[in-house]
């Protein structure tokens, strides 16, 4: 398939705008998984339309947020308590789990005795076989659980700490997102700027690890000039940088360890 031709056909715009046919939707979703260029193009179209919606934003009336939250809470209280399966999170129907009733067995005593013996042996076989099977599946469940837990721990490393969440939810904090430039389009740097103290924080700097002896440096664009806002490392934690005046935009460059008085590299990420 020619990816450029596919992008040029306009089908991706139709997809994002909800105009594509079912067949086109399935095809676009398939290609998006296969080709990173197509996924990036979809994201760029989404970003442009999202910016359009944000350019036309209107502030909803005060008090509506509390009203909606009250409605959400009222709804979740109405729901009855359900028993959830710990593993799958699916609801368990308690009535379904009752064992079926056993029916009787008739015949002469001898036949009964012989049959009971045979049945006993059969049942024992089945019992042991199932025990063995269960032990085997328990073992593989335990192994899977272990893998899953390790994955969970790994993904939690990137999660924000409560102190970081409260920083970004502080009303005097203004957030901005810088997007990666040529070569690292999927990178983002989240910034928090304190409107009262003028301190700037890098909340999450998701950029490629810099080469040895190099560090990322943040610049605030003030009066059309870059102002040094400090250097930062790539780690899963918020870093406090320098105080900077209200900036029109921010940009990140790659500089030698400790930073440079003036930007010397290409822009790695920028945003307003």
């Amino acid at each position: 398939m020619n990816i450029q031709e596919y992008i040029a056909s306009g089908v991706l715009e139709s997809y994002v705008l909800g105009l594509a046919s079912e067949k086109e939707v399935a095809e676009v979703e398939q290609f998006a998984l296969q080709y990173p260029e197509i996924k990036a193009e979809i994201r760029a179209i989404e970003d442009a339309l999202e910016s359009y919606a944000f350019a036309n934003a209107q502030t909803p009336p005060a008090g509506l947020e509390d009203k909606i939250w009250a409605q959400i809470e009222a709804e979740s209280n109405e729901k009855q308590t359900k028993v959830l399966d710990f593993e799958s999170g699916k609801e368990i129907d308690l009535d379904e789990k009752k064992p079926p009733k056993l029916t009787g067995f008739y015949g002469s005593y001898l036949r009964i005795a012989a049959s009971v013996a045979l049945l006993g042996s059969l049942l024992a076989n089945i019992y042991f076989a199932s025990q063995w099977k269960e032990a085997k599946s328990n073992l593989s469940l335990a192994v899977n659980e272990n893998i899953k837990l390790q994955k969970d721990i790994k993904s939690q490393e990137g999660m924000m700490k409560p102190s970081e969440v409260s920083l970004i939810m502080d009303p005097q904090i203004k957030m901005s997102k810088l997007v990666g430039q040529k070569g690292s389009e999927n990178s983002t740097v989240m910034l928090a700027w304190d409107t009262k103290t003028n301190k700037v924080y890098v909340v999450r700097g998701n950029l490629p690890t810099p080469p040895a002896g190099m560090q990322y440096q943040l610049w605030a664009i003030v009066d059309d000039k870059p102002v040094d806002a400090g250097v930062f490392d790539i780690k899963n934690n918020t870093q406090e940088l320098k105080k900077v005046p209200p900036a029109k935009a921010f940009a990140v460059t790659l500089e030698k360890q400790g930073g440079s008085p003036v930007p010397t590299s290409d822009i790695m990420a920028m945003g307003i």
Partner: peptide
């Protein structure tokens, strides 16, 4: 881009 992102989308 210019939206007021306070938190990454995945989070």
């Amino acid at each position: 881009m210019a939206r007021r992102i306070s938190i990454a989308e995945e989070e």
